[in-house]
Design a protein around this nucleic acid. Structure first.
Lengths: 149, 149
DNA sequence: TTCATTTTGGTCAAAGAAAGTCAAAATTCA
DNA sequence: TGAATTTTGACTTTCTTTGACCAAAATGAA
């Protein structure tokens, strides 16, 4: 077990204690674990990605920080299920149907549903080449859902 | 948390109390927070800009002052303003800044803001050719906002 | 009135304080 | 062994703090 796992473990415990949100300083943490600061970035991107249910925000400069938020898991399963069922390409009618469903289920808010649909509509993707529109639509759709988890 | 944040916090509280307008003296404030006067200018420009919903006026000389006014614009106007200010192409950092602002202003919900950002992120647009990404990002961003108005 | 002085606030650039990126080197795993 | 993962560190970017110098408004003396 490497140092990355140690750091990840430490953060997860701290997240338990602090009930889901945690703010820390990159260099502090690096010192505590005796590693270079950039290793913290590595840990963030490999173990605390949105796909894994975390949101990581940060700020540079004096008084900078890294904030990690664990998102709740209830609708996570539902959303994950939907995400995993999506293929590499997606047409607009299907997108509409899926969004409608998620809203009806209460998995996402009406506002988020609308936002989602306007992001994958024809007007939004008009600058994209025809042949890759389906793929882009699928990517956008997935990304939005992933980040909503 | 740095000194700039302290100062900003102090001002915001004072604004609450005084119901939206506040007049103060640069050197007073600087003394109170034990910093150089120009730091006040820094705080003004980074935390009380018009984009963030404030008007800052000032006057030099004897009896000089800095007046901060919090302005409340209705969300429709604000959204329209933002939409119209967008160009044909948009980079990710700018998108982030704008979204953050809209959320802070209460013009869109946090959820919608997140949704918006994940829709224009790199992962969402990876299937789009590099050279048209900026354009697609701008289109998506605009469409989402338009539908949120 | 006119002009010098004083009292404010403004600008800008340099220095400092975090965090981010990227790719090479090291290590681990299949 | 070869590929994937992890560890490092040089370099970059962003945000903050500080200070030297500038500009404008008020005030009072000539």
């Amino acid at each position: 077990m490497g140092i990355s796992d140690l750091i990840a473990g430490f953060i997860q415990e701290a997240l338990e204690d602090s009930d889901g949100v945690l703010e820390l300083q990159r260099s502090d943490l690096a010192q505590r674990f005796n590693c270079v600061p950039s290793q913290i970035n590595y840990v963030m991107s490999t173990r605390f990605s949105p796909e894994q249910g975390y949101i990581v925000e940060s700020r540079r400069g004096g008084g900078g920080y890294i904030r990690i938020t664990r998102v709740r898991v209830d609708r996570e399963t539902l959303l994950m299920h939907v995400i995993n069922s999506l293929g590499d390409t997606l047409d607009l009618p299907s997108a509409r149907a899926i969004a409608r469903n998620l809203v009806d289920n209460g998995a996402i808010s009406l506002e988020a549903g609308r936002t989602l649909l306007s992001a994958v509509g024809d007007a939004a993707l008009r600058a994209a080449p025809r042949e890759s529109r389906g793929a882009i639509r699928a990517d956008v759709f997935k990304q939005v859902l992933i980040h909503l988890v």
